[in-house]
């Protein structure tokens, strides 16, 4: 706790990373308060009768261009979404590794580039396989 205080409030010290994230924390709190209070504004006005509050069964029914909903709405998803989700996860994890590499490429030199090329090549095998297998088609 003492250390946290020290890093937060050290004056002109070199370590103001945590202080920056503190600003973002305060922004998060204010953003949530702002959004929620804006959403609650019409409810408050409804108490004074400025905003109408006349509900009826037709108004709160599901809107489907005048038709009744047939069957359940919360259905199971098409499995095609999972193909893309899995491919996305693979590539997204790859990009997590790419960012630190990209920051310091000049320091790493040709060796760093070669390593990433090999890393990419391994992933590309899966990508090309998915392409030829038709997993990228939307039929």
């Amino acid at each position: 706790m003492l250390y946290l205080r020290a890093t937060f409030f050290v004056i002109g010290g070199p370590d103001y990373l945590l202080a920056d994230f503190g600003y973002i924390g305060i922004l998060l709190i204010i953003a949530v308060l702002f959004t929620v209070s804006t959403l609650l504004l019409p409810l408050t006005l409804a108490l004074f009768g400025i905003v109408p509050k006349k509900s009826n069964p037709t108004k709160v029914s599901t809107y489907e261009c005048g038709m009744e909903t047939i069957g359940k709405t919360w259905v199971q998803f098409n499995f095609r979404y999972y193909f893309f989700a899995i491919l996305f996860v693979a590539f997204d994890v790859l990009t997590v590794f790419l960012y630190p590499w990209a920051v310091n490429l000049k320091g790493l030199g040709v060796y760093g580039l070669a390593v990433i090329v090999v890393f990419f090549a391994i992933l590309m095998v899966g990508y090309v396989y998915a392409w030829f297998k038709g997993a990228l088609e939307w039929k």
Binding site: I24, L27, L28, A31, V32, F34, T35, V36, L39, L41, P42, L43, L45, A46, I50, V51, P52, K53, K54, S55, P57, K59, V60, S61, T62, Y63, T73
Partner: peptide, 29 residues
Amino acid sequence: LLKEDVVPEKGDKVLHWLAPVIVFVPVLM
């Protein structure tokens, strides 16, 4: 601001309220 707030009867009411907050807060962030 002066429009009536309609929540669908069969919907998930808590999530219905939460969704606009989740959409708008990250934009400000």
